[in-house]
Structures are given as C-alpha cells and as structure tokens.
Write a protein that binds this DNA or RNA. Structure first.
Lengths: 263, 263
DNA sequence: AACAAATGAGAGCACTGCTCTTGTTTCCCG
DNA sequence: CGGGAAACAAGAGCAGTGCTCTCATTTGTT
C-alpha cells in the first residue's frame, strides 16, 4: 500500500503514517488531546470547552470537528488515554518488584502507583472515577483499558492464593455468593482463578479495590481534610490493613532459592 | 425591630415570616431549590442551568438573582440541603433501632440508610460525594451538615467501645498514629472518645467510612457493572465485614436487664 | 398619601457546542 | 504533469449559558 509496486498484500508490520497528511493528522490529534488534558486539570469533564482547546492549539473551533466528531468523542479518547496511562503505570510499578513471591510488596507497589498517578493527574482521575458526565455514556472501547488496574491486583491475589497465602478470615455472616458472580466470571474468563473460586477471597478483593479508590477519591475530593493530616501515611496504613484482611502474608523470611533477585 | 413599640429585645421566639413579601420570598426560594434539585438529577452540578431552573419556576433568569447572588450560592444551598437531608435520614434510621446495645444493628441501619438515600437521590449524592465542581469551593457553612453522617457512625463505635466490644484485631504493621490525629481531635472535640483514643479503632472507623462511600460511589458511577450482580446483597456483605473488622460484636444473646427497649 | 425598598422583566455581553458554507491544500491516479 | 476528489481550515450563524444593567411595577413603612 505504498509506492512499492508489489500488488501483493503484506502490509509493513509497522503501519506508520506515510503521507504528510496522515502524519499531520496524528500529530494534530495528539496536540488536541494533550491540550484537552491540560484543560481538564482545571475545568472538569462536563465543563471542558472545545473552543478553548481549539484556541490552545491555534485552531478555530469548527476545525477540531475534523478530528473529533463531538465533544463526547473527545471525552472518550481522553478516557481511553487516561485509563491506559494509569494501567501502564500500575503494571510497570508492580512488575518492578523483583521478588515475585513478595505478594505484599507487589500489592503495595501497585496501589501506591495508583495513588501516585491520581495525585499527579487529578483531572484525569476525576474523569475516570469521579461523577460521570451526565449525558455521556462511555462506549465499549473504554471498558478494556479500564480493567487493567484490577487485573494487576487480581493476579497478585491469585498468585498469593496459589502459594497458599491468601486466606482471608471468614468474618461476617455468610451470605449468598451469587452477588459477586460477575467478578468470579471476570477472573475465570481471563484464565485467572482456574481453581474453585473462594467467594470470601473475591469479596475481600472487591472490597480492597473499592476501599483504595474510595480513599483516593475522598482525599482528592476533600473529604479527608479535617480527619487525615498525613495522607501519605494514612494511605499506607490502609493498604497494609487491606492486605492483612485479604490474608496476604509477607514473603517468607527464609530466602531459600530466590530466583534471581537481581534487577 | 418591629412595630412593637417596646425598645426592649425579646423578639418573638418563633420568627415566622410576617409580611407577605417575606412569606413569598421563602416560598419562591424553596421553589427554586426544589426545581434545581430536580434538574440536578439529570444534569450534574457543573452543568446545572440557572436559566432552565428559572424557566421551571416560571421566572426569567435575572429574577433568580434576587434570591441567589450566583450559581455558586445556589449550589451551596443545595449542598447544605442535601447534606442535612442525608444526615437526618441516617440519624432517624439509626435512632429507630430499639436495642441500643445492638451496635451491629445500629451500624447496619445507619449505612443502609446512607445507601438508600443515595440511590433515591443520585444527583444529590453526586453533588456531595462526586467530583467537586471545578471553580467552586464549598464555604464553611457546609462543613457542619457534612459531618452528621460520620457523627452517627462515631457514636456507634464509641458506644461499642465503652461496652467493651469494639476491639479491632491489630492487623497490618504498626504505623505512626499522627496520620489520623485530625480525626481523633474531631471526636474528642465533640465529647466522644473522652478516654484514650485507640488509634487502630480510629483507623478502622475511617476505613469503614471510606469503604462504604467508595462502594456506593462505585455502584452509582458504574464501576461495579461487570463484577457485582446484586448490589443490595453485596452492600450488606461489605458492611457486615466492616463491622467485623472494627470488632463490633452482635448484641449479647442474654437479654438481662434491657433498659426499656420500647420505642 | 409619599417615599423607599424589593421584585420581575428585558436587553445585552461574552461565552459555549455544533452545523453549514466557502475557499484552500493535499492526495491519488491516469 | 495535471485534473478531480478528498481533506482541511476558517468564518458565520443558531440556540443555549452565566451574569449585569436598566426600567417598570409591586410592596412595606412612615
């Protein structure tokens, strides 16, 4: 599909932009997105002004509609961008834990990365986890990037369980297990949790997930102002207790046969 | 300060609206507020249109400014209204538990009331606990109504502790206690927690508070769609486990000397 | 009855999302 | 190389927004 005279298929494995126009289009699209993200830090998704974004990139408002059919489409692109960036940050931070058996360390690294990203990008965090934009329904394209964080967490919990570690104390009355059937199916569908799914573990994982994001939201949205004086310390206190509630145990102090702890 | 010729103070103990104008002003103010609340259920705080509200009450937009100096002032009034309504609902539900020693029952009643109110008023809930409106800073007048829910919860925990019940298991590593110094001060300042404040109990109360609102926000904002199939059941599972984590125990099965369980 | 305060209506300003039209640039293919 | 089609940027325009100002009317007080 280039000046190459071969009529055969075989598109180049790296489908980089060839024509000047496609190149410019990608670049301008990226410029619009970054300008919109900057605006988003101090404007909120519902009040994001497409005209202001257009002015920031030196265009007139109608020209932006060549790149995004509507403000909602721009929001969708921002949503995917932010979800992917958060997911990548968490995956990277969790993967950096050398001792893979240290599930508590991985748990802490993952959640600390979530909070770090949220504090660094409060506007994007509010877009992802704040109140939804009233007339806007997130399309299907956003759900896969949205699952990256919980997938990292799930893998940690599953790894811990397979190591015989994640055994949450059965506190609270026994309830119907079907309430979290969706979460169990979600995990099984992705190859995790191929053994029998212990409902209590799933519940505690969901609770940890909700508690962490609830804590970050409370911190960012100002509800902890009078109560928590050191949010950094408090967050670590919270994730430590959540790990304990899940039954995650520290890595064995016996260091027999650690598989290449270098790097 | 009235036609009463007495220069002495002693205003009437019930300062009801006397003149027709004051009466009309109160009524129209209330009409504007209720119209704004209805608009809020499908518009979001940032997109709340003052002109649309004015049209709903049959006025022109500029006339509304006789009652609220700005859209922010209207938002403040809505904030106070919603916080007070939620607080009253929770206080009432918790007070309806006859057996005051049943701290778990009171815990459940209070949190179920929070969720019930949130589901019944999603727009107001998003105003209170969703992303803050970008350019708007909630004034001091809103903080007191905002504390009513956590005050109810705090009293339950303190009552449980004085009955020797609230003893959370010391899970997780020991941390600096000063992170939650604000919360301890908040409780002591209101006469609660006059004894020595156990940091672990304060932390677990804060965590429970955050988890419940995090759960409700996740449910209302659509983050539990694929995972939790029965939100009602899941919510009860969560608050039961939170009570257990706090060390709240069910009321003693021995019913010796219950102090007037009537009403 | 007279005056002052409160109230409602309207016009107007600068802004918004979005559409449509107009002129220009870039691309592809013969 | 050159013509036609697509993509593009700019502008005008529409209906909406928060908010201010002016003006006429109503209400309360003296």
């Amino acid at each position: 599909m280039t000046p190459a005279d071969h009529p055969a298929p075989a598109p180049s494995p790296v489908p980089r932009a060839r024509t000047v126009r496609e190149r410019a289009r990608e670049q301008i699209t990226a410029e619009i997105l970054t300008a919109a993200r900057i605006r988003l830090t101090e404007s909120g998704p519902g009040e994001l002004s497409l005209r202001a974004v257009a002015r920031d990139v030196g265009m007139v408002s109608s020209a932006v509609y060549r790149y995004f059919a509507s403000r909602d489409e721009l929001l969708t692109a921002l949503l995917v961008l932010a979800y992917d960036e958060l997911g990548a940050a968490v995956e990277q931070a969790e993967a950096a834990v050398a001792d893979r058996r240290d599930v508590v360390g991985r748990w802490r690294a993952a959640w600390l990365a979530v909070r770090g990203w949220a504090l660094a990008h409060p506007g994007d965090y509010a877009l992802l986890y704040g109140s939804p934009v009233p007339g806007y329904a997130a399309p299907q394209a956003t759900v896969e990037p949205a699952t990256r964080v919980i997938l990292v967490i799930l893998r940690i919990v599953v790894d811990a369980k397979e190591a015989g570690s994640a055994t949450p104390a059965a506190r609270g009355a026994a309830h119907d297990t079907s309430a979290v059937a969706g979460a169990i199916g979600f995990a099984q569908q992705r190859g995790l949790m191929h053994t029998d799914a212990p409902t209590e573990l799933v519940v505690r994982t969901l609770m940890g997930w909700t508690t962490v994001f609830g804590t970050i939201s409370f911190e960012l949205f100002g509800h902890l102002v009078g109560s928590v004086s050191q949010p950094d310390d408090y967050f670590e206190i919270v994730i430590d207790r959540l790990a304990a509630d899940l039954g995650l145990t520290e890595a064995d102090p016996v260091r027999n046969g650690s598989p290449s702890p270098s790097r």
